[in-house]
Design a protein around this nucleic acid. Sequence first.
DNA 1: TGCAATTACTACTTCAAGGTAGAATTTAAA
DNA 2: TTTAAATTCTACCTTGAAGTAGTAATTGCA
Lengths: 137, 137
Amino acid sequence: MQLSATSQYAIRILVYMAGEKDSQSINAAELAETLLIPYKFLAKIMTSLVKVGLVESTRGKEGGYKLKKKASDIMVGDILDAFHESIKDEQCILGIGFCNGLCKCALHDQWMEPKFLLQKMFRESSLEDIAGRGCKR
Amino acid sequence: MQLSATSQYAIRILVYMAGEKDSQSINAAELAETLLIPYKFLAKIMTSLVKVGLVESTRGKEGGYKLKKKASDIMVGDILDAFHESIKDEQCILGIGFCNGLCKCALHDQWMEPKFLLQKMFRESSLEDIAGRGCKR
DNA sequence: TGCAATTACTACTTCAAGGTAGAATTTAAA
DNA sequence: TTTAAATTCTACCTTGAAGTAGTAATTGCA
């Protein structure tokens, strides 16, 4: 019951970028070193974030990455979406395909409330909201 | 953000067993067929459940499995514990080792409430509570 | 006793996630 | 124009979860 390493890394990366001075780009090597994420793996994640439109990149000397939107406009849920890991309404906690009001799994009712709060957390937490908290990791 | 297939199967198996007539043992082949779980994989899971003391087995002809405790005394959390997948208080949603009150991750505060509800759901749902709901899957 | 039915054990295969390596491409600046 | 610094692409390796196969051990019953 946890997020994939990829999603965890992606969130930490974007939170860190949101905490930096605006419109200043940062490169993969620096991110990897600061956040203690394997460089090559981070580079792969960054490419995904660029493709999905959360980050923009410039190649070559003096290149790097920048957020493509305001930190207040990027939600944690958007990041999870990029890796198909956000929680859908129809997600069944016991992995049953056809778990809905009609034919539901044994934990269906109990799962409703925690699921709703998880969705709410992901949907309503923007990078701006959460950057600057904690220890910049 | 979901339970492992192993845990999902284990919960469904025990819920089904709790819904059957008491003190009547059921065998692996029947469970696998009813619950649409690969037989050999189910057998492996059953062995784990026996080892951890949630189920008792008898081998040989007329053998099979029975719950080792009353359905009201087996919590979903106990099952997750068996596969080291229950949610610990110190579990950080961003996977940071040292995420606590002193040095916390960006989502630490937002994660508290959904985490608490998940723990509560697992801790307080007994097999008796949830068996008989839904469609016996 | 012998047989059939059952769980338990050991070892293997498959698949996806996590992670690595190296070369190609792009760009700014000397 | 050359070079160095950066991203991007392709391909691979590693690890753990999911799933399979075969055999050994156990047990009730004819």
